[in-house]
Design a protein around this nucleic acid. Structure first.
Length: 743
DNA sequence: AACAGTAAT
């Protein structure tokens, strides 16, 4: 949760302090902020929280937007006995966040509230943060905000997390894969009675406390998470078992029932002094303005049409100020609604304020995304057409009206087919409520749902946690590398189907990350250290072999593959033609991977103005900057792992890109095959491509440079199902090479 | 003509 989300009134006018002897400005700020802190809903709960953690190892804290929990809880805990340095434990506090920006902005805010410098600014700084590419801590750090992934990395170094006396896990209701893995590890540490003791605070929006309490409280039985031991697991076999791709998830209990559990503490001193393994619960209310919610009487035939009507009804009836935020499933429908609204806006009578339509989605170039933060021209209402990016990741200012189509695009991994599908689906009730809340951040608001009340009631209470929707190979490798001998019996908050776990183990076996007995191989250990999917990490290791000798170009390609949306996606026909022309010089006949390599090399070689180079090639400068970060990190890690020892570095650095293509194309494509042997297809007489493994028909994605080409074989690093099965990021391979890797 | 929800190591 971003700081700005928790402090709707953060920009209130500050009272001038009476004149005092010269004061440290950090302390002056701290004293001013203290007044604001005292008015947060969480403030009066401080003693209840202390009592709860004095008697329990686990506290489940539920509270909605505006309670102040993300900033205040760590400060409340700081002077408690379990946050004192002691034998086997440095007593620090870790606070995990699902997003980097949230970790950074919360750390910044808490440092201000504590009157402390931030991170490495001073050795005495008591607040820091740690996110990928940006570690900002000092020897004095007592409170560390970090992303979930960073804490998992710390578990790799120290399975007991001896640095911390308390771990606070925030935004658990979002149920990212990483938070689910962390909860399993933390449960193991608390139950395993870690040396020095460990307190865990799990923070969530209200609904799921019952399931969380059960997870931490239920007797361990036979499925304890074991850290530090590498044992035997059942034989990995090729039988895929029953097909349960279509997982239905029951969700959590009703919030009303959940708050009435046996261990509940309702904000007073009545802590239940039961076994410390029993978790405590505290509920804290949020702080939001009221939002009036309206439904359709009958389902809409055409959503864009219904949205258009609602937007114009609001615009003509409601006085300014008050912008409109519309939730749509994807870029295409945002664009079509934008066209409709802009056409209609031209027919508005001159006495009515103007409309400014602003699209918002992650792939949108940064400068266009920034437009939502700029004030509209006078007598103009903004209409923001957004994907679910505005649900949690971006807070749009000025919104008083939300229009919700009730749809979202969801990625689901299909275990049996080995592909991801990206499909438009109805949102969950909690998602609908989250969207509704976006209307009440600055003033009382309205939410207009473009579906009926009964449709809302029929929605799933929560969306399925990511761990039920993703390829589990990466998660299982994470578990194995952190000493979980038998990941099939790991304590998952929501255990994935056995068939999905087995399929992932098999994939890891094929990548030589696991042995046939299921133990982690030296290769598997190396793969787990790279910040890549197991398949891409395997490609990197393959390229480092002396026989292939192409680590430098493979790092460039892999870095580009692990970043989304390198190519800008114009929304007009003319734009698409311009883009094709701009990219002509980078295009490789060998496919998308060598085209990506040419793009990365071109950008690296550009000495004067890289932003202009990116714009001229219709490439996202922001994406390219992250490619540079990933590339740098991979180069450093490969250096540290001594993977460059067999590499001909002189040749890689001095050869021009064209010469390189001739000499290194084959080893590059062969390296890709080592990670993506199952993502290969051959050309059939009817002109279609069919996969070698599974014999499925697959189309070359319209965005590929190989689109429309007929070659004997292809390898692809992404396999997605949308309107049909598509191969994305595709390269040309010889049938003989595929035969070699498939045996 | 077809196509890309959102995070993260």
């Amino acid at each position: 949760m971003a700081v700005s989300q928790q402090y709707p009134n953060m920009n209130h006018k500050r009272k001038r302090q009476p004149d005092k002897p010269a004061q440290n400005p950090l302390q002056a700020k701290r004293i001013k902020l203290l007044e604001t802190r005292k008015h947060l809903p969480i403030w009066p709960k401080q003693s209840a929280i202390h009592t709860a953690l004095a008697h329990h190892d686990v506290l489940i804290l539920s509270g909605e937007t505006g309670s102040g929990k993300s900033t205040q809880i760590p400060q409340f805990l700081l002077d408690q006995p379990y946050c004192k340095p002691r034998k086997g434990c440095a007593g620090k506090i870790a606070v995990t966040q699902p997003r980097r920006v949230a970790a950074i902005s919360l750390a910044r805010r808490v440092a201000e509230e504590m009157g402390s410098p931030l991170g490495s600014a001073s050795p005495g700084s008591r607040v820091g943060y740690s996110v990928r590419f940006d570690e900002n801590t000092s020897p004095g750090t007592r409170i560390k905000y970090l992303t979930e992934g960073m804490l998992l990395q710390e578990i790799l170094r120290d399975g007991a997390l001896g640095e911390y006396g308390c771990v606070v896990v925030d935004e658990v209701h979002e149920r990212s894969v990483n938070v689910d893995l962390l909860l399993g590890f933390l449960r193991g540490l608390v139950r395993g009675k870690r040396k020095g003791g460990l307190k865990v605070v799990v923070m969530s929006a209200t609904a799921e406390v019952e399931a969380l309490a059960k997870f931490f409280d239920e007797s361990a039985g036979e499925t304890e998470a074991m850290i530090g031991g590498e044992g035997e697991v059942p034989q990995v076999t090729d039988e895929s078992g029953r097909d349960d791709d279509e997982v239905s998830w029951n969700g959590f209990e009703d919030p009303d029932e959940a708050s009435q559990g046996t261990g509940a503490i309702n904000g007073t001193h009545n802590a239940v002094a039961s076994s410390p393994t029993q978790s405590a619960r505290i509920y804290v209310e949020g702080r939001q303005y009221p939002v009036t919610t309206k439904y359709l009487d009958t389902p809409a035939d055409e959503l864009e049409e219904a949205a258009l009507q609602r937007i114009f009804a609001l615009h003509t009836k409601e006085p300014l100020p008050g912008d409109i935020l519309v939730f749509l499933p994807g870029q295409d429908r945002i664009h079509s609604l934008q066209t409709l609204v802009e056409e209609f806006a031209q027919s508005l009578p001159p006495d009515i304020p103007k409309l400014q339509v602003l699209p918002l989605f992650a792939a949108l170039p940064q400068n266009q995304q920034q437009r939502i933060f700029q004030p509209a021209p006078p007598r103009t209402r903004k209409v923001i057409l957004s994907t679910n990016i505005a649900e949690t990741s971006v807070t749009v200012p000025g919104v008083r009206f939300v229009v919700d189509t009730g749809l979202v695009k969801i990625k689901q991994f299909r275990t049996r087919l080995g592909l991801e599908s990206l499909l438009v689906k109805p949102i969950s009730r909690s998602s609908a409520d989250q969207r509704q809340g976006r209307a009440g951040r600055e003033a009382p608001g309205q939410c207009h749902r473009l579906y009926t009340k009964s449709a809302y009631d029929a929605l799933e209470s929560h969306s399925a946690p990511e761990i039920l929707r993703c390829d589990l190979a990466s998660a299982l490798l994470t578990l194995k590398a952190r000493g979980i001998a038998d990941p099939l019996n790991f304590s998952f908050l929501t255990p994935p189907p056995l068939s999905a776990l087995q399929k992932a183990l098999l994939h890891l076996l094929h990548l030589s990350a696991l042995s046939t007995t299921g133990s982690l191989t030296p290769t598997g250990r190396q793969l787990s250290r790279l910040p890549l999917t197991p398949a891409l990490a395997r490609v990197v290791l393959e390229a480092a072999k002396p026989s292939l000798n192409c680590l430098h170009p493979i790092i460039d390609i892999v870095a580009a593959l692990s970043v989304e949306n390198l190519w800008l996606n114009p929304d007009t026909e003319e734009g698409r033609e311009r883009a094709a022309e701009a990219r002509q010089a980078l295009m490789s006949r060998e496919g998308d991977h060598l085209t990506l390599l040419a793009a990365v090399r071109g950008y690296v070689a550009e000495a004067s103005d890289r932003r202009r180079w990116a714009e001229a090639h219709m490439i996202s400068h922001r994406a390219m900057q992250s490619v540079m970060d990933v590339r740098k990190q991979l180069l450093a890690q490969c250096q540290r792992a001594d993977l460059f020892r067999h590499q001909d570095t002189v040749a890689a650095e001095t050869t021009s890109s064209t010469t390189m293509e001739l000499s290194q194309t084959e080893p590059i494509l062969r390296s890709l095959l080592a990670g993506f042997a199952a993502h290969t297809a051959r050309l059939c007489p009817d002109g279609s491509y069919k996969t070698f493994v599974g014999n499925q028909t697959v189309g070359i994605h319209p965005g590929s440079v190989l689109q429309g080409r007929k070659v004997e074989g292809i390898v692809f690093s992404e396999f997605v199902y949308t309107t049909r099965a598509w191969a994305r990021n595709v390269s040309v391979v010889r049938l003989g090479w595929v035969g070699e890797v498939l045996g």
